[in-house]
Design a protein around this nucleic acid. Structure first.
Length: 160
DNA sequence: GCCAACGTTGGC
DNA sequence: GCCAACGTTGGC
């Protein structure tokens, strides 16, 4: 299957790219997604090796902080079954878990966050859903061109 | 199945 | 902290 590209939002106070980088082991489960559209992307369309723009939301400088990569295939989100978890879903059972997720691994942290403000100035990125007014979806597809454009912006920041 | 009320997201 | 936009819930 052809490699796809995604943008995944995380609040850095909860889980940041630095947290991902420092995770022992290779995999981190992207748990706690409780939106059907975002779940469907993970469950139905994401697969091993897909590229991920790691986006920091709800923070001082919102923007893309680095790169991650999908590891393996989607599977049930165990946090939905855990009564102690803030992501617990009483309507899910082990047989019928409503929520699925993918695992990701750290690839790269940009020297500086590619801010939402900077991204808005790039004509090449104007189609990205994260830039659209009122967008709240935490996982959105991006094109290969958008992905690589943001990568170039992130790597260039160090020289400026 | 409609839709008002409510809760959440997330930039500013 | 504000508030617009959006998703979900539940009465009818």
């Amino acid at each position: 299957m052809a490699k796809k590209y995604w943008l995944m939002k995380s609040e850095p106070d909860v889980f940041s790219i630095q947290d991902l980088r420092e995770r022992p082991g290779q995999r981190t489960s992207w748990d706690g997604v409780r939106n059907y559209q975002a779940r469907n992307f993970m469950r139905d369309e994401m697969s091993h090796g897909d590229g991920v723009l790691f986006y920091h939301s709800n923070c001082k400088t919102p923007g893309v902080a680095g790169i991650a990569e999908v590891v393996g295939e989607s599977h049930d989100d165990p946090s939905a079954l855990d009564p102690e978890s803030e992501y617990y879903d009483p309507k899910s059972t082990a047989d019928k878990n409503r929520w699925q997720l993918v695992d990701v691994r750290f690839v790269e942290e940009f020297p500086a966050v590619v801010s939402l403000e900077a991204m808005r100035c790039e004509p090449e990125l104007e189609g990205m859903r994260v830039l659209q007014r009122g967008n709240r979806l935490s996982i959105t597809p991006v094109t290969a061109g958008e992905f690589h454009h943001v990568c170039r912006m992130g790597r260039k920041a160090a020289k400026e």
